[in-house]
Simulated scan of single mutants.
Amino acid sequence: MNINFSAKTIGVSIASVFLLFYFVGVYWSFAVEPIDIQHEVTSAATADNVAPVIGYTTTTTLIKVASSILDKPGGYLSNDALPPGVFLDNMPSWEFGVLEMVRDMALVLRKDFSRSQSQSLENTHIKKAQPKFNIDNKSWAMPSAESEYRKAIDHLYKYRNALVGISTIKDDHAQFYARADNLTSYLDEIQKRLGSYSQRLSASVGKDKINTDLAGDSVARQSTFEGSHSQLRTSWFQLDNVFYESRGAAWALLHFLKAIEIDFDSVLKNKNATISLQQIIRELEASQQTLWSPMVLNGDGFGMLANHSLVMANYISRANAALIDLNELLRKG
């Protein structure tokens, strides 16, 4: 009797722990709520007793988006070594998508937004912040990914303080230049990023891809030979990872473009490009609709089941096409 009782107790305990991990994992996998940028900027400016200047909104948005992967339920999951985090893959993929967009924004902030011309000095705070976002996102040893991201965010706060003149460091000056050429530099960065996501999402059904790598240049060459056609197909085990990574990237980009709409308002109006940017924002908002299925479906073509990857690819492709048009408008408009 004692043996049976012990075995039963152990079985119930294991089942209880499993259920606990399951429900905690489900909770940690809930979609992250969108950020109210206007509210965050107003709150931050009120707390600091300052008036937002050019660049304040974009910097605040970068801080909040970067913080979102650290402060959401469950915290940062990509480098978890213990259950239930170690068994989750959708949310870590979402985190990586957000992180990729954070890295792009931090890089452009360092190279372009905070500098007026190619010969200008780079801001010391951004110079320290940008490399810290590039640590391996799965690093858990010293230094951990979370600690480096926190340090990067702290440097962004210092840059924002310098923008509005409340830095505690003597002779600490910072600028943010809302110029058309700076904005096109950022759009150049994210165009290729979105193009890559579109290709990976479309590969959920497999397709024969024509090699266009050297198209348009009769004397172009590449390192190794590649055939004129290639067959691309995302592994069944990677479908949900690619989907959630793309969803995370779209979520982050959506907020950055909303911030850009505010900081680059005069530039956009001068180029008559505000409507174009708003159309891109609308496409990205559509990509964040609730996924009602318990899993990412991979229906084929016009079959009976939906293909969520192709739906996401459609929104991202449309946003990317509009980005290309916006970039051309900023350059020539």
Rank of each mutant, 00 (worst) to 15 (best):
M1D: 14
N4Y: 14
I10A: 12
S13T: 14
I14C: 04
L20F: 12
G25F: 02
W28M: 14
P34G: 08
T42A: 14
T46G: 07
A47S: 11
V53R: 04
T57A: 09
A66F: 02
D71A: 10
K72C: 12
K72Q: 12
Y76E: 07
L77C: 10
S78W: 03
P83L: 07
P84A: 04
V86W: 13
P92W: 01
S93H: 01
S93E: 01
W94R: 05
W94T: 01
E95R: 09
F96A: 15
G97Y: 04
M101E: 09
D112G: 01
Q117W: 08
I135R: 06
S139A: 15
M142F: 15
P143T: 06
S144E: 11
A145W: 07
I153L: 05
D154G: 06
H155L: 05
Y157D: 05
Y159N: 02
N161L: 15
S167Q: 08
S167D: 07
K170L: 11
D171K: 15
A178K: 03
R179K: 08
R179A: 00
T184D: 01
R193Q: 15
S196P: 06
Y197A: 13
K209P: 04
I210L: 13
V219C: 09
T224E: 15
S228P: 07
Y244F: 15
R247G: 01
G248P: 04
A250S: 11
W251G: 03
H255Q: 11
H255A: 06
D263L: 06
D265F: 04
S266P: 04
L284K: 02
E285N: 13
E285S: 10
S287W: 03
F302A: 15
S309Y: 05
A313R: 01
S317A: 13
R318Y: 02
A321T: 03
L323P: 00
R331N: 05
K332V: 06
